[in-house]
């Protein structure tokens, strides 16, 4: 029996490795950026899922959607309320589709990554942090475009004593710049930690269960614990996408209204 079970130990990080299916080689320039990789494949899967969530569930454009559509409505409603509460004012409507798009992408890719043998898009630090950096950079450019140099008022909280202003500006600016990193890092680190935890626990349990029949039977108790961890990870997958949305909306508020 034992020789049927894979006894070699993979690195737990193997699951985040992306493979290249298709690549273009030219002697003239580096075309690596156009490679079709696991990442690209799963991005397309996420795209297909999101599109199908909208195209399939509307019940052929009838007034009422199918039962599937109620989830869509709920998500949309939650997003509207969240962004409205976070941003306030009149401008939230302009940025709601933008933030909603991010939410849907992150939610679907998070949940998709929970399927075994799947690939976690949101655990790719390069991808997620560049995404958050792009969002941050775009918001900053928008802030300067909208407010000009008055944008720097963002770094001086109201009611600061004049003596403290230089120090506070420094600190606030640091924290503002760090937003670009922290927004993505939070999501990617959470997702990656969750997947690592699950795979490590799974590996440990695998080792334990493959000792003999008794441990195989006993192993079903820790299996329940892993089941709980899986549930927790599902919750985290949903909460992290929500957290991203809330933070993005609040950053957007800072940029739009400056306080």
């Amino acid at each position: 029996m034992l020789n049927l079970i894979n006894t070699f130990i993979n690195s737990p990080l193997d699951q985040f490795e992306s493979q290249t299916f298709f690549s273009i080689f030219t002697p003239f320039m580096d075309m690596n950026n156009f490679n079709i990789t696991t990442f690209a494949l799963y991005t397309f899967i996420v795209l297909f899922i999101i599109i199908s969530l909208f195209m399939f569930t509307n019940n052929n454009n009838m007034i009422m959607g199918s039962k599937w559509f109620i989830t869509q409505e709920m998500i949309y409603d939650t997003m509207v309320n969240t962004i409205k509460n976070q941003m306030g004012g009149k401008l939230w409507g302009f940025y709601m589709p933008f933030i909603y798009t991010f939410f849907m992408f992150i939610l679907v890719s998070n949940l998709l990554s929970m399927i075994p043998y799947s690939f976690a898009l949101t655990a790719q630090f390069v991808f997620i942090i560049s995404l958050s950096f792009m969002v941050w950079l775009g918001m900053t450019i928008m802030g300067f475009y909208k407010h000009g140099l008055v944008f720097f008022a963002l770094f001086v909280p109201q009611g600061t004593p004049l003596v403290l202003v230089p120090l506070l500006v420094l600190i606030e600016m640091m924290s503002y710049i760090m937003r670009s990193l922290s927004l993505g890092l939070r999501l990617a680190a959470n997702v990656m930690a969750g997947h690592l935890l699950m795979i490590i626990l799974g590996g440990l349990l695998m080792q334990f269960m493959s000792i003999n029949i008794l441990t195989t039977i006993l192993g079903f108790i820790p299996l329940l614990i892993i089941l709980c961890v899986v549930m927790l990870e599902f919750a985290i997958a949903m909460i992290q996408s929500y957290v991203w949305t809330v933070l993005m909306a609040s950053y957007m508020k800072d940029v739009q209204y400056l306080h």
């Binding site: 199918s66 599937w68 998709l112 043998y117």
Partner: peptide, 25 residues
């Protein structure tokens, strides 16, 4: 998906497809 036929089976199909795809990869 449509009307009364709406069910959660597509999710299971998706899971199955992803598992098969992921495992084969």
């Amino acid at each position: 998906y449509d009307g009364e036929n709406a069910s959660g089976k597509p999710l299971l199909h998706l899971i199955g497809a992803i598992v098969v795809l992921g495992y084969s990869m």
